[in-house]
């Protein structure tokens, strides 16, 4: 009886200590996340006007949502375009980072250097630099010039021409070629994903591969029967990370429109409504896709 009580005391002390440790998060979450979230949700239903002593909001029902979806000429188009781009790019990033992680996990000369170069985009493609990069018309102009001077010998162009004239399903191929042409965007966006995959690959024990070797597995079989299932949970993590990362990129057109509406036009209600629409759509996509992926995830222990 006394022992039981003592244990309870220890547990209680640990619970209190635990709460003390996460107290900063709770405080920050309540003040800087929950409150603004409800406020912005409320604002999205209001007409917000800035006054000298504060801001006044007049309840306006679904006016802002209505405006975003039916009146505004850009929002729908931008949203669908962004989501389509997000989906295609995320898929490409997943495949790319998985295979790069596989290669970088092998032993070869100069691995440290190659790794260092591949992770460079983690620094270089973040924040404002990415936005600046995209406006760089000069570099793209130079690229065009080089292409022209070499008689347009782009290998994707050539293959595309052959396949299109051969009359094989053109729509799907166009998407593939878009990705291949934009492989630089994929490469610079997949730094963190490669790191996560790599750290997952480190956790697979060698004994499994050895056993497979003795049983006569080929590398191809080992890839799909051991590596793939063992790090399948990381696909979920990476998928969510990729989508979220894409949402927050500074070159995202929907985000640009939102912040322009807010900072330049000072239309807070409309901006919040658009932000919430965007967020809800992304959340639904994340929810559905991670539900589908989690069906296939295999947990070893």
């Amino acid at each position: 009886m006394k022992d039981h009580k003592k244990l309870e005391g220890l547990q209680k002390r640990k619970a209190i200590a635990g709460y003390l440790f996460i107290a900063p998060f709770i405080a920050g979450f309540l003040v800087f996340m929950v409150k603004p979230m409800f406020q912005s949700l409320y604002m999205s239903f209001c007409n917000v006007e800035l006054g000298p002593g504060g801001f006044t909001s007049v309840f306006a029902k679904l006016f802002n949502y209505n405006r975003a979806l039916t009146v505004d000429t850009e929002f729908n188009r931008l949203l669908t375009e962004e989501l389509y781009r997000m989906f295609i790019n995320s898929l490409a990033i997943m495949v790319f980072s998985f295979f790069v992680a596989l290669i970088l996990n092998q032993k070869f000369k100069g691995r440290a250097l190659v790794r260092a170069i591949f992770f460079l985009p983690v620094i270089l493609s973040s924040g404002v630099i990415l936005g600046v990069e995209y406006n760089n018309e000069l570099l793209s102009g130079m690229q065009e010039m080089i292409e022209n001077s070499t008689n347009g010998a782009s290998i994707t162009d050539a293959i595309q021409q052959i396949l299109v004239t051969a009359g094989i399903g053109t729509r799907a191929f166009e998407t593939v070629f878009e990705i291949v042409d934009g492989v630089y965007d994929v490469a610079i966006a997949s730094g963190i994903q490669i790191i996560i995959f790599l750290s997952g690959l480190q956790t697979i024990s060698d004994s499994m591969y050895e056993a497979a070797d003795i049983e006569g597995c080929t590398s191809w079989e080992k890839l799909w029967k051991i590596t793939f299932p063992m790090i399948s949970s990381l696909f979920l993590v990476n998928w969510i990370y990729t989508i979220v990362d894409f949402c927050m990129r500074s070159d995202n057109e929907v985000m640009e429109k939102i912040s322009e509406t807010m900072i330049v036009n000072l239309n807070y209600g409309f901006a919040s409504a658009m932000a919430w629409l965007y967020f809800a759509t992304v959340l639904v996509i994340i929810g559905i896709s991670s539900w589908i992926i989690s069906k296939g995830v295999y947990y070893y222990d």
Partner: peptide, 23 residues
Amino acid sequence: WFACVILVIVIPPQTISTSLYLH
């Protein structure tokens, strides 16, 4: 609370930036 941490990862800061700004 841990679900809240995940929520913080997932929510784009732009969603709440409007009201944080006013805040």
